[in-house]
Design a protein around this nucleic acid. Structure first.
Lengths: 189, 189
DNA sequence: GTTAGCATGTAAGGAGTTACATGATTTT
DNA sequence: AAAATCATGTAACTCCTTACATGCTAAC
C-alpha cells in the first residue's frame, strides 16, 4: 500500500521523504491516517534497493534559490522499472476483503491508468461491497432478534454505507463507460 | 481489538473458539472482515494465561444431547478479572485516529456498559470525525486546483461519509442523553 | 466412502506503529 | 537565542494474515 502510494506520487514528480509524507497525508486523507516516518523511510530504502526509485543527483539548476547544495534532503525519483511496477500493482486487483484500504489508494491514482483498468477496479470494488451488503441484509432479516439494539444499529448504519457506496460506484462506472474520463492531469509515460 | 471482542462475546455466554469466530464475523461484519484462526487461538491462549478467561470444565449437564464428553471442543468462559479488563478496555478511549476500527468494536458492545461511558465514546468519535471532516473541507477549498479529478472525487466522497456519520452520531448522542438507552439485553455484572 | 463442515492449532511473515535519537533551518 | 518546523533515520514491537497441518463428525 505504502509502496504503491510512494510510486504513485513519485510518478508525478520527484520528491524527498518529508514532502512525500505531507502529500500522502492529503492524498489518502479521505480514508487513512497519516503514515509514520518509521514506515516511510525504510520503505524508501526498500524501493531503492529494488531499483524502482533512485536518488536524484542531477545538477540542481532549477532548484529553489534559497536551498542550494543541501544534502540533508534526499530527493527521490521513479525509474522506468518503478513505473512498470506501479502499473503492475495498479492492475493486480487488491485483496478480496471489503475493509481493505487498497481500493482507496488505487482510486487516488486513477489518473495514472487507463479506462479499462479503472473499470475493472471499480467493478471489482462494487462486487465486494455488494457482497458485504447482502451479508448485512441477511443478518438484519434473519438474526435480528438475537442481537441487541446497538449491534443492530451498527449493522443498519453499515448497510446504509454499503448501499450508498454501491450507488456512488454505479455513477462512476456509468461515467467511465459512456464517455469522458474526467480530465487526466498529465498524459506522460 | 480481538482481545476486547473476545471478552465481550464471552461476557454474554461461554463459547468455544470456532463458535467465537462465527459470532465475531456477524457482530463485526459491518466494518471488519472475518478474523482468522491463526489470530484467534493464540489470543485465547494469551487471555487464558492472563487469567481473563478459563476453560469451562463443569459437568456438561445441560449439554446438547448429541455431543457428550467431547474434548475436541474447548469451551471458554470469562472470569471476574476478565470482566474488569473488559470494562477497562471499553472505558479507555481508543486511538485518536479516524480510521481505527476501535470505535466500531466498542459500539458493538455498548449493551455491556453504562450510559456515561457510551456518551463519552460517542462524543469522542464525533470529535475525531469532525476533525477529519474539517481537514477534507480544507483540502477541497484550498488545494482543489492542484489535485486531479479522481483524487477530488475521493475527497468529496470521504467528506460526504464524514458528514453523514456526524449526523448519525448526533442522533445517537441525543437519544442517549434524553431518555431511553435502547434495551440493555442483560443487566448482569 | 467421500465430501463438507466442525474444531484446533503452529510457523512464518507482512505492513504497519511508537518511541527514540539526531541535527539543520527558519521564524519569532 | 529560543522555539517551531523541516528532515532523516533506527529498534522494538503490535496485531494481524496466510499457509500449513491435523483430526473428528455429519450428511449424501
Amino acid at each position: 500500500m505504502l509502496e504503491f502510494a510512494i510510486l504513485g506520487l513519485l510518478h508525478e514528480s520527484p520528491m524527498h521523504g518529508y514532502e512525500l509524507r505531507k502529500q500522502l497525508t492529503t492524498k489518502l486523507g479521505a480514508f487513512r491516517a497519516a503514515i509514520s516516518y518509521g514506515s516511510l523511510y525504510p520503505t524508501l530504502r526498500r524501493l531503492q534497493s529494488a531499483g524502482w526509485i533512485t536518488e536524484e543527483s542531477g545538477a540542481p539548476a532549477t532548484d529553489a534559490p534559497l536551498l542550494t547544495n543541501r544534502r540533508s534532503r534526499v530527493v527521490y525519483k521513479i525509474t522506468a522499472e518503478g513505473k512498470e511496477r506501479f502499473q503492475e500493482l495498479l492492475s493486480s486487483a487488491g485483496p478480496e476483503t471489503f475493509d481493505d484500504p487498497g481500493f482507496g489508494v488505487h482510486f487516488a491514482f486513477f489518473a495514472r491508468t487507463d479506462q479499462a483498468t479503472r473499470l475493472r477496479i471499480l467493478e471489482g470494488r462494487r462486487r465486494r461491497v455488494e457482497e458485504r451488503r447482502e451479508g448485512l441484509r441477511d443478518v438484519l432479516s434473519r438474526a435480528a432478534e438475537r442481537l441487541d439494539a446497538y449491534t443492530l444499529e451498527l449493522q443498519r448504519h453499515g448497510l446504509d454505507a454499503c448501499e450508498r457506496e454501491v450507488r456512488w460506484l454505479e455513477e462512476l462506472i456509468a461515467h467511465e463507460r459512456s464517455g469522458r474520463p474526467p480530465q487526466v492531469t498529465d498524459p506522460s509515460n
